[in-house]
Deep mutational scan, measured.
Amino acid sequence: PQECLLLEPGLNEIMANSLDYNERLWAWESWRSEVGKQLRPLYEEYVVLKNEMARANHYEDYGDYWRGDYEVNGVDGYDYSRGQLIEDVEHTFEEIKPLYEHLHAYVRAKLMNAYPSYISPIGCLPAHLLGDMWGRFWTNLYSLTVPFGQKPNIDVTDAMVDQAWDAQRIFKEAEKFFVSVGLPNMTQGFWENSMLTDPGNVQKAVCHPTAWDLGKGDFRILMCTKVTMDDFLTAHHEMGHIQYDMAYAAQPFLLRNGANEGFHEAVGEIMSLSAATPKHLKSIGLLSPDFQEDNETEINFLLKQALTIVGTLPFTYMLEKWRWMVFKGEIPKDQWMKKWWEMKREIVGVVEPVPHDETYCDPASLFHVSNDYSFIRYYTRTLYQFQFQEALCQAAKHEGPLHKCDISNSTEAGQKLFNMLRLGKSEPWTLALENVVGAKNMNVRPLLNYFEPLFTWLKDQNKNSFVGWSTDWSPYADQSIKVRISLKSALGDKAYEWNDNEMYLFRSSVAY
């Protein structure tokens, strides 16, 4: 590609939709070469300064400071330590791993069909083939991996386009969902002041979706909304933040926050679980009234959910574990990228498509890292959202599997949720969690119950496949010279610098 592309739109479109291996590689590498390399010296300084700040406030390091958001002291029976968070994340991840490994094996087999000769049947997945710029969410792999393609499509993007949905309609439908469970409408100022579409040439905007509580009843969302099912669900997520903000607005200023950061992320995700169900999509006209649910549509639905929800958990866990180790000084600065990709291979089963030396800073190419967000919130929120969903479905008197529950129109479920939201940070999160779900610790069981039918199906699908991955295989081993030459021509001086062995191999191949 010759034109100058922004991340959004532009590069993200390539990473969402392109099936051209080399075009995807160009976009993936260009973003890291342009952005990651510029941020490397800044990120090194950032780590030093943030650690100084944390230690001045009596924390061991900046990662310890972040984990302090979960700490509860002096509340008998509800205490929770920063170290306990690490333990809980690690042991819940071990419980999730078998499901993830089977999802990984299934996706690898489907990617082998889409990119023959580029995928190893026992290796890691190349990082640039996973549906977005970071491989964070695998949602866009659904069209390549759908188990029963002859069934009606449960990705309702086409239906939204056919019905001329726009950003306003998407957010109005999200608002209807919250109102149906007894939560309030958005304010008039929300509709007047939010930026729900890309302003285009009028001004440059950071398009990463964010929710804003500017105080004095001024709530806004910034999002360059596209007419897709993914953005339909994202709208519910962002509006969930606003509902939380509005619910605790009466609290004293210092207590106007989520019980912990994971709670804030979980609220909209609960609504997304219901909004994505075929039952709900039928009720708002995005699935045909004669759409029939059966075992095959159930597996299609659960796989689509797993690509988004299960596929991202190792990504989140590994990223934050790397940062915690960096802040603690356990990874020397001259080994940041080496350790990043070692951990990516070992924990996530994902491999870099071309080698990256220590001039890169791949983590900082992600919005949340370069903008100083702690990231473990996206792991804890996933466990909380299924715990909350299970409890709210019980309040809504849902009968049947958890993945079929739609809590819309249940004011009982809405009241149970609101009673927790309005507390803000005035009560320990362990107590707030217990008030809703009857337990005071994160628990992976509801998530595993939700995906149980899919897990059973995946194990059957993978019975003749290798489950797990070898960390030795690299996608650039066989194609390295071709890849390096093409990237050198595209990126010039910003391309990865060849070492002596690679230059010798190149000259030998040319001479041959």
Rank of each mutant, 00 (worst) to 15 (best):
R136W: 07
R136A: 08
R136Y: 11
R136N: 10
F137N: 08
F137A: 09
F137I: 12
F137K: 12
F137C: 10
T139R: 08
T139K: 11
T139E: 09
T139M: 10
T139N: 10
N140V: 10
N140L: 11
N140F: 11
N140R: 13
N153Q: 05
N153C: 12
N153I: 09
T187M: 03
T187D: 08
Q188W: 03
Q188N: 06
Q188K: 10
G189I: 01
G189C: 00
G189W: 01
E192M: 07
E192V: 07
E192Q: 10
E192W: 04
N193G: 02
N193C: 01
V206A: 07
V206F: 05
V206C: 08
V206Y: 07
V206L: 08
H208T: 12
H208L: 07
H208N: 08
H208V: 12
P209H: 08
P209E: 07
P209C: 05
T210K: 13
T210I: 05
T210M: 10
T210W: 07
T210H: 02
W212G: 03
W212I: 02
W212D: 02
W212V: 05
W212M: 03
W212H: 04
W212Y: 05
W212S: 02
D213Y: 05
D213R: 04
D213N: 10
L214D: 00
L214I: 04
L214P: 06
L214V: 05
G215L: 04
G215D: 05
G215F: 14
G215C: 13
K216W: 00
K216A: 00
K216L: 01
K216M: 02
K216C: 01
K216S: 00
K216N: 02
K216E: 03
G217K: 00
G217L: 01
G217I: 00
G217C: 02
D218E: 02
D218F: 00
D218W: 00
D218C: 00
F219M: 03
F219P: 00
F219I: 01
F219S: 03
R220Q: 02
R220K: 03
R220M: 04
R220L: 00
R220E: 00
R220W: 02
M229F: 10
M229T: 10
M229A: 11
M229C: 10
D230E: 11
D230K: 09
D230H: 06
D230W: 10
L233V: 07
L233N: 07
L233F: 11
L233D: 04
L233M: 10
L233S: 05
L233P: 05
T234D: 07
T234N: 07
T234M: 09
T234I: 13
T234L: 08
H237R: 11
H237G: 11
H237W: 08
H237D: 12
H237F: 05
H237C: 12
H241G: 11
H241S: 12
H241K: 14
H241C: 14
D245M: 09
D245H: 12
D245C: 09
D245G: 07
D245W: 02
D245R: 04
D245P: 03
D245N: 07
M246T: 14
M246R: 06
M246I: 08
M246C: 05
M246G: 03
M246F: 05
M246Y: 03
A249R: 02
A249Q: 02
A249E: 05
A249C: 05
A249G: 06
A249F: 01
A250D: 09
A250L: 07
A250M: 09
Q251T: 07
Q251H: 11
Q251Y: 00
Q251L: 04
P252E: 14
P252G: 06
P252V: 03
P252A: 10
P252D: 15
P252L: 03
P252K: 04
P252F: 06
P252M: 04
F253W: 02
F253G: 01
R256N: 05
R256Q: 10
R256I: 02
R256D: 00
R256S: 08
N257A: 09
N257F: 11
N257R: 14
N257E: 13
N257H: 13
N257D: 12
E261I: 06
E261G: 10
H264F: 03
H264M: 05
H264G: 12
H264R: 09
H264S: 14
H264W: 07
H264I: 09
H264E: 12
E265Q: 10
E265G: 10
E269K: 11
E269R: 08
S272K: 08
S272C: 11
S272A: 14
S272T: 12
F301M: 08
F301N: 13
F301A: 08
F301V: 09
F301Q: 08
F301P: 00
K304C: 10
K304R: 12
K304G: 10
K304H: 11
K304S: 11
K304D: 08
K304N: 11
K304I: 07
Q305C: 07
Q305D: 10
Q305K: 10
Q305R: 09
Q305A: 07
Q305F: 04
T308C: 07
T308Y: 09
T308K: 11
T308N: 07
T308L: 08
I309V: 08
I309D: 07
I309Y: 11
I309G: 03
I309L: 09
I309E: 04
I309M: 10
I309N: 08
F367K: 12
F367W: 12
F367H: 12
F367T: 10
F367N: 11
F367L: 09
H368Y: 10
H368D: 09
H368F: 08
H368V: 09
D372T: 06
D372H: 10
D372E: 09
D372N: 07
D372A: 06
D372F: 01
Y373M: 12
Y373S: 08
Y373T: 06
Y373H: 12
Y373C: 09
Y373V: 11
Y373W: 10
S374E: 13
S374Q: 13
S374Y: 08
F375V: 08
F375Q: 07
F375S: 08
F375H: 05
R377F: 07
R377K: 13
R377W: 08
R377L: 09
Y378S: 10
Y378M: 13
Y378K: 07
Y378C: 06
R381T: 07
R381C: 06
R381D: 02
R381F: 05
R381Y: 04
